[in-house]
């Protein structure tokens, strides 16, 4: 089994970090994972993409060719990558507030109010990436919830860890009620 995930948005939204945590969770599940990202020289604001390939065995080509799962956190990123999703079974998760889906894309879309909840519960939009990622994990089962939490432990520290752990729980909850469009 091999799964290709593309996470995209703006620099500063935690796109790369979400990919790192997802990949790390993959190896904690005993799998192979390859995570890469592409970004501009600017630290903030430019288009940003993070790719994760998770497989039962060695991964020949470590980048995403066609995404099984697309996670979009900005409209321009969604517009750019929404056509690069596997037509048969591909799914798109998007931040409900930041992305309006293209009605011509005949794929399952899951709107997740990640930014809205991050602001509402944490007064901090910076954890929206974790909320959205946890919702994706909850719906797709790409990695186990335990590994996702453990990956957070191994990747983050201090105050970021606590906030993100709570954000994971919010995301899991959203995942259980999110409705396919």
């Amino acid at each position: 089994m091999i799964k290709q995930v593309r996470i995209c948005g703006f620099g500063g939204q935690g796109i790369v970090l979400a990919g790192v945590i997802l990949g790390h969770a993959g190896i904690l599940d005993g799998k192979y994972a390859a995570q890469s990202s592409s970004y501009g020289a600017e630290a903030r604001g430019s288009a940003c993409k993070s790719e994760v390939v998770i497989s039962d065995g060695w991964i020949d080509y470590p980048h995403v060719l066609k995404a099984d799962i697309l996670i979009a956190m900005s409209q321009p990123a969604y517009n750019k990558y929404c056509c690069d999703v596997v037509p048969e079974h591909g799914v798109i998760f998007h931040d409900e507030e930041l992305v309006t889906p293209n009605p011509q894309i005949a794929l399952s879309h899951f709107p997740v109010p990640a930014t809205q909840r991050a602001l509402q519960i944490f007064d901090n939009r910076l954890v929206a990436n974790t909320v959205l990622l946890a919702a994706v994990v909850s719906v797709t089962g790409i990695v186990t919830p335990d590994s996702l939490k453990l990956a957070l432990d191994k990747t983050l520290d201090g105050r970021h860890l606590e906030a993100n752990k709570k954000a994971v729980d919010v995301g899991f909850q959203l995942g259980s009620i999110v409705k396919k469009h």
Binding site: G23, A33, P62
Partner: peptide, 9 residues
């Protein structure tokens, strides 16, 4: 850069 910035097992 492909290997340098790649994250893997």
């Amino acid at each position: 850069e492909g290997v340098g910035h790649l994250r893997e097992n």
